[in-house]
């Protein structure tokens, strides 16, 4: 074949693509982020599938690490909404909101930010976070609180941590857990090991549990891990922010000493969805906004789906689809009138 014919083949494909532009039609569109822990992915998938199935939306989902970057992307309108934000992790939140977070008719938290990000409403999931050790280790060494950890740091050491103990830490830096800072402030002679993903951290913990080795693990509830394995929390000091000066990016991570965050544990988290104010102010998306205000996914429901996804290794879309099919009574009431 001659060159010119081959070029005409190329042109054919281009002409076809460009010529078919006319046939494309765009529906209502929203752009969401895929979270970097399974629970968050499931919550978001529930919202996305309801928007797509019941409300004629087309939702585009982008993998994006959660953290300040995500907040800014939502504020800038590059993403329209993100799901299941945990307030005590998002230290930048006082820059972001200008609304109250309401749960069961009560105001659980109020935000006085500049409103560059809109609070869409709670997801319904209530989360807690702590450091945990397996029950067999707690009983063997008699560890009751975090204060007992130093005495047994040798048992918790690995090759990489040397003579310090090792904490399988909050895996993603963007979550702003500041584990090493917390350990240092509380005087726990452990090394925080960031493994990069939830799955890696949990896999490491699971392997250690199987070998009946002692290990210290950062984790949150609801999580499937607690259904499979018997874990005990070490009860970190109760959440507190130091007066006036919180430990945030805005004040250059100012150190509050042992009086407040990050020398304490996390607050009880009424998780929430948030979105771009301009997007949800428009009349086009009023229904979507109404839906987010009503959405209430319960911890139990997320946990059942977590088992399907993380233990049985099934596809998230499939699992959520199945849940929606089987439990219409749970979510039909979230739909806007």
């Amino acid at each position: 074949m001659t060159l010119s014919k081959k070029i005409s083949a190329l042109i054919l494909s281009l002409v076809l693509i460009i010529g078919s532009f006319g046939t494309a039609n765009a529906g209502k569109r929203l752009h969401a982020a895929i979270a970097d822990w399974t629970g968050g992915i499931i919550t978001c998938e529930v919202a996305v599938q309801i928007l797509e199935r019941e409300m004629g939306y087309k939702v585009k989902q982008t993998v994006f690490p959660s953290g300040t970057g995500l907040w800014q992307a939502v504020a800038a309108g590059e993403l329209d909404f993100a799901c299941e934000s945990w307030p005590s992790y998002a230290e930048a939140d006082d820059v972001m909101f200008n609304e109250d977070l309401i749960y069961d008719g009560k105001v659980v938290k109020s935000y006085k930010g500049d409103g560059t990000v809109d609070l869409l409403g709670t997801t319904g999931i209530i989360g807690t976070s702590d450091y945990w050790i397996p029950r067999y280790a707690a009983e063997k060494f008699g560890i009751k609180t975090w204060k007992d950890l130093n005495k047994h740091k040798k048992e918790f050491a690995t090759i990489e941590s040397g003579n310090k103990g090792r904490l399988i830490a909050c895996p993603v830096a963007g979550w702003n857990c500041h584990d090493q800072k917390r350990l240092d402030l509380l005087g726990i002679d452990f090394q925080a090991d960031e493994l990069g993903t939830e799955a890696a951290a949990v896999a490491e913990a699971k392997a250690a549990y199987m070998r009946k080795e002692p290990f210290l693990l950062y984790l949150w509830t609801p999580h499937w891990f607690f259904g499979e394995f018997d874990m005990v929390g070490v009860g970190l000091p109760e959440y507190a922010t130091c007066e006036g000066d919180t430990f945030t990016e805005a004040n250059n991570w100012k150190d509050c000493g042992t009086k407040g965050w990050p020398a304490t544990g996390w607050d009880k988290d009424y998780t929430m969805n948030y979105g771009n104010p301009a997007t949800f102010a428009s009349a086009e998306h009023a229904k979507a906004k109404a839906f987010f205000e009503k959405m209430r996914l319960e911890n139990v429901d997320q946990s059942t789906m977590l088992v399907e996804v993380d233990i049985k290794k099934r596809d998230v879309k499939e699992v959520v689809n199945e849940w929606l099919d089987n439990n219409p009574n749970k979510w039909k009431s979230w739909l806007p009138n």
Binding site: P65, S66, G67, T68, G69, L70, W71, Q72, A73, V172, A173, G174, N176, L195, G196, T197, A200, E249
Partner: peptide, 21 residues
């Protein structure tokens, strides 16, 4: 490599992106 536990500059880049820094 930070995706599977790499450290150093790569992790800094990664965290920079995640923290909008």
């Amino acid at each position: 490599t930070p995706l599977i536990g790499g450290k150093g500059l790569g992790l800094e880049v990664f965290n920079g992106l995640a923290r909008a820094d």
